[in-house]
């Protein structure tokens, strides 16, 4: 565990909690892509199956359970409790266009051809693109609430910090995982455009809105 990895995990946790609190406090999930949240729940579910097979550390187990619990709570709030506020008309990204190719790729490119390993690989690939329905929704409506942009920023920071963590681990622990690194780079690149808008608009106190 290094400082970048810890900061990345905490940034991820902050993102998840900011989103949950936003929905809970405003009693509304307007502007939030339910599809992205379902994809994230699927990511955590397929990745953390090792909770049942091997123990790594109390930190590892507790964080996995929190991520899983929060992901399902978020999906529940969007599709059940505050369903009336869900903006389904704008959440039109075809999630199967992500899940199917990513599933195929996980079968073809993995560390080991075993069910758990393929599911883990699937989760890594899926996570890298799971935010696309949310970004698509923002580009479609042309705007995002400020709190939603904080959520996205924390989520993007988590990935960027993990990249630094991998560079660290490569130099100091001789450790690298090519699948995670390539997927992590793709995921971070997807946020670059958003980072630019966040820094030039939201941090200047303006609402994030895109030119028509």
């Amino acid at each position: 565990m290094n400082i970048f990895r810890l900061a990345g995990d905490l940034s991820h946790l902050a993102a998840i909690i900011v989103l949950l609190l936003k929905i809970w406090k405003t009693r509304s999930c307007a502007g939030i892509s339910g599809k992205s949240q379902i994809l994230f729940a699927l990511v955590f579910t397929t990745r953390y199956l090792d909770l049942f097979t091997n123990f790594i550390s109390p930190y590892n187990t507790v964080m996995k359970m929190i991520y899983l619990g929060c992901a399902y709570a978020t999906v529940y709030l969007i599709y059940m409790k505050f369903k009336a506020t869900y903006d389904g008309n704008h959440d039109t990204f075809r999630a199967e266009f992500l899940v199917v190719p990513v599933g195929g790729l996980a079968f073809l490119v993995n560390h080991e051809f075993s069910p758990l390993e393929i599911l883990w690989t699937f989760s890594i690939y899926l996570e890298s693109v799971a935010i696309l329905p949310q970004l698509f929704m923002i580009s479609k409506t042309g705007e995002a609430e400020t709190i939603t942009t904080h959520y996205l920023f924390a989520l993007g920071m988590y990935r960027a910090l993990y990249l630094i963590n991998w560079i660290w681990r490569y130099y100091f622990e001789n450790f690298f995982d090519l699948i995670a690194i390539v997927a992590g780079c793709v995921q971070t690149i997807l946020y670059c455009d958003f980072f630019y808008l966040y820094i030039t608009k939201v941090l200047q106190g303006k609402k994030l809105s895109l030119p028509a």
């Binding site: 990895r5 995990d9 991820h12 090792d50 091997n54 790594i56 550390s57 590892n60 964080m63 996995k64 991520y67 560390h111 390993e117 883990w120 993990y162 963590n165 490569y170 001789n174 450790f175 690298f176 995982d177 090519l178 699948i179 995670a180």
Partner: peptide
């Protein structure tokens, strides 16, 4: 440098 799965990461 050995490549190995990063299962300790979240």
């Amino acid at each position: 440098t050995a490549e190995m799965p990063s299962k300790d990461e979240l």
